[in-house]
């Protein structure tokens, strides 16, 4: 019974990952992609945790723990990267595509 629930949760998380991946590929703004990556990170933590229980070996939790701790380093880094620039939109603007 619980096995099925774990499996269903895994599938649901995978579906969310797919949607986030779509958002990361489609954009359109740089912040959208950053948000998608952030969301993907959280969902990875959940997937690894649930997967450990699905296979009956919850010793994968260390990996989830490290993601929970370090994942937001990426977000901070990107924000710092944008901070000095007035127009981060130039990194990802549909208008730029049309110019070519």
């Amino acid at each position: 019974m619980l096995e099925a629930i774990y499996g269903a949760s895994c599938l649901a998380i995978l579906a969310v990952m797919g949607l986030a991946l779509l958002r990361a590929v489609l954009g359109p703004s740089a912040f959208d992609r950053l948000m998608a990556v952030n969301m993907f990170g959280t969902k990875t933590v959940l997937l690894i945790s649930v997967f450990g229980f699905l296979t009956g070996r919850p010793d994968f939790l260390d990996i989830a723990l490290i993601y929970a701790l370090v994942n937001f380093l990426g977000t901070i880094a990107v924000l710092r990267f944008f901070e000095g620039r007035k127009t981060p939109a130039c990194y990802d603007e549909p208008a730029e595509e049309q110019k070519e």
Binding site: A24, A30, R33, V37, F40, G41, D92
Partner: peptide, 15 residues
């Protein structure tokens, strides 16, 4: 920049 973001996702997926 987008490639860097996607590379982050790539790493999460491979983990």
């Amino acid at each position: 920049f987008c490639a860097v973001m996607l590379a982050g996702i790539f790493s999460l997926l491979s983990a």
